[in-house]
Amino acid sequence: MKRRISLFGALREADARGYIEVDVPAHSTIAELREAVQHYAREHAPAISPGLIQRSAFASGDEILHNHRSVPEQGELAILPPVSGG
């Protein structure tokens, strides 16, 4: 399934549209989605460091989705680099 992933902070530099789209099999885990994003970045956004993607979290609009969780089939999905509010 193709999933759109919203970008924030330093990861916005991966695509000026503010999102990327990656294909993952149905029932993939967040850990597998992370691998797909790493692959996408190597191909399309080499300026983004793999370490930054590794330190990033995935989230829906409601909650952080840790590595063991399934990729939700619908709804907003985002990748969140380390945070620095305040």
Partner: peptide
């Protein structure tokens, strides 16, 4: 909180702050 800070400097450069991982 999912908030990101980008600092702009007097020399014209900008940088995103290092931050805390939520992973």
């Amino acid at each position: 909180a999912p908030i990101w800070k980008q600092e702009h400097y007097i020399d014209g450069h900008s940088a995103w702050s290092e931050g805390c991982s939520l992973c």
